[in-house]
């Protein structure tokens, strides 16, 4: 079976900074794959490189069996869509929800726009009452739902999720995570999800890759984390940190 996403020894260089140092990755169709790491680990850069938003220095990215060049064509964007981290920054401040959702349809020349917009809003649980609102009239969770609707409206098979809930309150986060899971089940989507939170990744993904400093630390399945079957110290540290604060003797605090 061809992989949904295959990344082979990918290098990304910003100016002279090597943000990704030869990272490889393989995501099967219908799978949900997680990327975990702290800031500067290159997890978001990897996601953006796949989307065509980061300068690839060397290496290959293959999506659904097609190797991507430096330029992405329109067909690519109908296969792959992305949801950004900050729901306050990813919606155009001067456009209504309606206009936001119409844009991809207009670009790709869909005729049944009205129906699709209504369906997309229903699917993310917003309904028509939100259709003519501006971004500033929405709460954080509602904005993220709109962003998800926008990503879904072209009916992609792969969704790239860049910390989609880290800017949201815990209760809203649960709602959005549930929504994402439900959509994935219904549409048989492939997820590639970035997060700094191990708990979210184990909740959402079957397999994951731990990253640090632009390199892959280790590949795990979600169950490994549950059963603490990790081999690298870095992962162990992350795992410990995710359990909250543990009072220790002073000399043991420093890393």
């Amino acid at each position: 079976m061809t992989s949904a996403i295959a990344v082979d020894r990918l290098e990304v260089i910003f100016d002279r900074f090597r943000a990704l140092k030869g990272v490889s990755l393989d995501v099967q169709p219908g799978e949900s794959f997680g990327l975990v790491g702290e800031s500067g680990s290159g997890k978001s850069t990897l996601l953006r490189a796949i989307a065509g938003l980061a300068p690839v220095a060397s290496g290959n990215i293959t999506v659904n069996g097609k190797t991507l060049g430096a330029r992405r064509d329109k067909a690519f964007y109908r296969e792959v869509q992305m949801v950004f981290q900050d729901p306050y920054g990813s919606l155009h401040p001067r456009q209504t929800v309606d206009r936001l959702l119409q844009e991809p349809l207009a670009i790709h020349g869909f005729a049944d726009g009205e129906k699709r917009i209504e369906r997309a809003l229903d699917e993310v649980g917003l309904g028509n009452g939100f259709r003519f609102r501006y971004a500033h009239q929405l709460s954080g969770g509602q904005r993220q739902r709109v962003a998800i609707a926008r990503a879904l409206i072209l009916e992609p098979s792969i969704l790239l999720l860049d910390e989609p809930t880290s800017a949201l309150d815990a209760s809203v986060q649960a709602e959005v995570l549930n929504l994402l899971e439900e959509i994935r089940r219904r549409r048989k989507l492939t997820f590639l999800m970035v997060s700094h939170d191990l708990a979210i990744i184990t909740h959402m993904c079957e397999r994951l890759m731990v990253m640090q400093g632009g390199e892959a630390v280790e590949n795990l399945i979600a169950n490994d984390l549950v059963e603490r079957r990790v081999t690298k110290d870095y992962t162990r540290n992350l795992l410990r940190a995710s359990e909250g604060f543990v009072r220790t003797a002073p000399e043991q605090i420093s890393r």
């Binding site: 995570l177 549930n178 708990a199 979210i200 959402m204 984390l225």
Partner: peptide, 22 residues
């Protein structure tokens, strides 16, 4: 309780997550 409950935890296999009913 809702706030405590709705956070994903490692090892707690809850799909979907319980949501807060305000």
């Amino acid at each position: 309780r809702g706030l405590l409950n709705c956070m994903p935890k490692i090892g707690a296999d809850r799909h979907p997550l319980p949501v807060l009913d305000r």
